[in-house]
């Protein structure tokens, strides 16, 4: 066998994404939620790279660059929010910040 089937790369991306999603849903600590988000973003980037290399196009890597930028922006804002949460409630439990209800 010469080379990796594209489907395998995408399966890897899907598995990582599902793991990140599961983490996002069942963790209550905001640090872990942010980490799960990073995992999911990374999985999305992986999917882009797989598709890009499969077709021999550079756009996949360019898109990955955008995903990384998004991740950086998300991480900075998310960490600032985390900081505020901890300062106001003295805990990282996301369920304490549930004052905005309908």
């Amino acid at each position: 066998m010469n080379g990796v089937p594209m489907a395998h790369g995408l399966v890897l991306a899907a598995v990582l994404f599902a793991l990140g999603l599961a983490g996002l849903m069942f963790r209550r600590n905001m640090v872990f939620m942010l980490l799960s988000l990073e995992v999911m973003l990374n999985a999305a980037g992986l999917a882009f790279i797989v598709a890009g290399t499969a077709w021999g196009q550079a756009e996949g890597q360019a898109m990955f660059l955008l995903v990384i930028t998004l991740a950086a922006a998300e991480a900075s804002v998310g960490l600032a929010l985390l900081n505020q949460l901890y300062r106001r409630f003295k805990t990282l439990d996301i369920d304490t910040a549930s004052g905005m209800r309908g």
Binding site: G3, V4, A7, V11, A14, A18, L21, A22, V50, G56
Partner: peptide, 25 residues
């Protein structure tokens, strides 16, 4: 739930035309 989503995603991959092989160029 996440596993279900994963199954659905894999099913989509299965349906898709993904016979391409990455040469590593």
């Amino acid at each position: 739930l996440a596993a279900l989503l994963l199954v659905v995603l894999l099913a989509m991959l299965w349906h898709g035309d993904l016979g391409r092989v990455i040469e590593g160029e």
